[in-house]
């Protein structure tokens, strides 16, 4: 193997060692998973608190509606006990009473529907954050994936990784520049033999 081939080989190694994602970026990417986990947990707690508060409000409002309905029932019971009312007046009173009970039921249902919407929206927000994390997991897979590039180094040179390669290159490059004899020694130490 001539020096030109060795030069090409070294350029390849240097290029490979320079291609990786910087360590700080990889670290930030891993940290981002933690940051997103914290946001997911905080939103979950906040959503739970909102739903709990809403449930209490529904309970209170339902009790008030029931109380208003009860008052109406008593009111109409008293009115209908009056025997001087005409048939038409009784009918008018009964129609109004039925409407009142219908209003009570409709509004109690509305409260439950609104509560369901609040639950769904809170759930959706949590799902969205979880999905945001999935987005980052996919990005992180790519950011970390020059491990695959490092596999080139492992496979070709039997070195533990880019860092070791850089270290080894740092150690060897000055040696290589010190003359043919030393170059030959280095070639031997790299396990490279001339054909």
């Amino acid at each position: 193997m001539n020096t030109k081939t060795i030069g090409g080989f070294l350029i390849l190694l240097i290029t490979l060692s320079a291609c990786g994602t910087p360590y700080q970026v990889k670290k930030l990417s891993v940290k981002q998973n933690d940051y997103l986990d914290a946001a997911i947990e905080a939103t979950a707690i906040q959503s739970e608190a909102l739903v709990l508060a809403s449930e209490k409000l529904v309970l209170q409002a339902t009790e008030r509606i029931d109380q208003l309905a009860k008052e109406d029932t008593e009111r109409f019971s008293t009115l209908l006990a009056d025997e001087t009312l005409s048939a038409e007046e009784v009918s008018q009173a009964l129609t109004q009473y039925a409407a009142s009970m219908e209003t009570a039921n409709r509004n109690k249902i509305k409260l439950l529907e609104d509560l369901a919407t609040i639950r769904e929206q809170s759930q959706e927000l949590q799902e969205y954050l979880k999905q945001l994390k999935q987005v980052h997991v996919a990005l992180d897979a790519y950011i970390q994936s020059e491990k695959a590039g490092e596999a080139v180094v492992n496979d070709v040179l039997n070195l533990p990784g880019i860092e070791a390669l850089v270290q080894q290159m740092n150690n060897r490059i000055p040696t290589l520049t010190n003359g043919l004899n030393q170059l030959n020694q280095t070639i031997e130490s790299l396990g490279v033999t001339n054909d």
């Binding site: 909102l50 409002a61 008030r64 309905a69 008052e71 109406d72 109004q96 009142s100 209003t103 609104d114």
Partner: peptide
């Protein structure tokens, strides 16, 4: 009096029914 009290009662029920409207 009863018919109108009942109507006002329904108005109050509707107000109660709107308890969660703002949040929703």
């Amino acid at each position: 009096k009863t018919l109108n009290e009942s109507k006002i009662g329904q108005l109050k029920m509707q107000i109660q029914g709107m308890t969660l409207s703002d949040i929703k």
